[in-house]
């Protein structure tokens, strides 16, 4: 199945398209031992900041370290939950408000593993990957995103 043991690229230039997500779901129809998928989609929010309104986020990463870290997280989660599949995609570069910047997709025989694993993955991705979002404002200023 889908259990590679080397870091794989999780980064996508620009937004993640809804079509990519649909295609990814479709790709799993041949894996008939799967009984449930869980999907998390992160979307860029049009926040009001002190100096303007967010129009886009520009993402940068310490890529090599981020990919290594993502690999470690992936291994941990595979060891912890009985998953069939796991996919992580994160945007780099500019993503407009309303567009998708994170796609986490887990699949398992029974729903609980997929749901819990997806949850934990999202939390760990946000806390542990050296990725930064620069919120670009309509005033041409910017602020650095802070994760809750």
């Amino acid at each position: 199945m889908e259990k590679e043991r080397t870091p794989k690229n999780i980064f996508v230039q620009g937004p993640i398209s809804p079509e990519k997500i649909a295609q990814s779901v479709a790709n799993h129809q041949s894996k008939t031992d799967i009984g449930g998928h869980s999907i998390f989609l992160g979307q860029v929010r049009k926040d009001q900041k002190e100096n303007g309104t967010v129009v886009a986020i520009e993402y940068t990463a310490y890529e090599e370290m981020a990919l290594q870290k993502a690999f470690e997280i992936r291994e941990d989660i595979f060891a912890k939950y009985p998953l069939t599949c796991m996919h992580i995609y994160h945007s780099l570069g500019r993503v407009e408000v309303g567009q998708l910047c994170l796609f986490v997709f887990t699949s398992s025989k029974h729903r609980r593993a997929a749901m819990d694993a997806c949850d934990e993955l999202v939390e760990r991705i946000k806390a542990e990957l050296p990725v930064w979002g620069k919120e670009l404002l309509d005033t041409d200023e910017h602020v650095w995103k802070v994760n809750q």
Binding site: G42, Y59, A61, Y62, M65, A66, H90, C101, L102, V122, I125, K126, A127, E128, L129, P130, V131, W132, G133, W144, K145, V146, N147
Partner: peptide, 10 residues
């Protein structure tokens, strides 16, 4: 060596 500000991915 890298100086890493607080992460804000996702």
């Amino acid at each position: 060596i890298a100086l890493l500000p607080p992460f804000s991915g996702g």
